[in-house]
Computed example of a mutant assay.
Amino acid sequence: MSENLDLVWAHEELPATGAPSVFLAGPTPRSEDVPSWRPEAVDLLAAQWDGPQPLTVLTPETRGGFRAVHYDDQFAWETAARAAATAVLFWIPRDLRTLPGFTTNVEFGHDVTTGRTVLGCPPDCPDPRRNRYLIHLAHHYGAPVRETLPDTVGAALALLRAPS
């Protein structure tokens, strides 16, 4: 882990507000056979972040890969973490077999009007057509849309650097 980055896993205490933070929203693998996209996003954030204080990265995955015992606990943590984040990075490499992202669709619809979201949808994912509505919604509300994970990370960090 980089010195300029603090990683907060699901169900861990959220940091005090005021520090720059990014929530990593998007589909979570439900099988050990499907790799998570989040480690790459964390590496990219660490490499691109040049702010004067550490960046907090909030991930809905749990430390060690353990799943929440109660769905309500996961929902409550994710909802609070997305609300607390300075930026919410949505990365949706849609694959209806392995990473369908149905919950992600709802979360994006909920958050897109906040002015704190970035949408990343790779055109070469297995089911890119399933992202068309989200892309349209993002454009409608002025949320940045990117096609690669590095560009999506860059757009999320640009939100943090923008004057408020």
Results as ranks from 00 to 15, higher is better:
50 D>W: 03
101 G>T: 05
39 P>Q: 03
103 T>Q: 10
92 I>Y: 02
91 W>L: 01
103 T>A: 14
63 R>F: 11
56 T>Y: 04
48 Q>M: 07
98 T>F: 14
84 A>Q: 12
73 D>I: 07
82 R>E: 13
79 T>N: 06
91 W>K: 01
40 E>K: 03
94 R>V: 14
94 R>L: 10
97 R>E: 14
49 W>G: 10
60 P>Y: 14
70 H>A: 08
60 P>I: 15
87 A>R: 09
74 Q>D: 12
73 D>C: 04
86 T>N: 05
73 D>V: 09
62 T>W: 13
83 A>W: 01
69 V>Q: 05
80 A>S: 06
94 R>W: 07
44 L>P: 07
38 R>I: 10
53 Q>I: 14
100 P>R: 15
67 R>D: 07
76 A>I: 00
66 F>S: 08
46 A>M: 00
89 L>H: 04
101 G>F: 08
80 A>R: 06
92 I>W: 03
40 E>I: 01
55 L>I: 08
100 P>T: 07
58 L>V: 12
93 P>K: 00
88 V>R: 09
68 A>S: 14
60 P>S: 12
73 D>T: 15
51 G>S: 14
82 R>F: 04
84 A>N: 03
97 R>T: 13
43 D>H: 02
57 V>T: 09
97 R>D: 14
63 R>Q: 13
101 G>H: 05
50 D>P: 00
86 T>F: 00
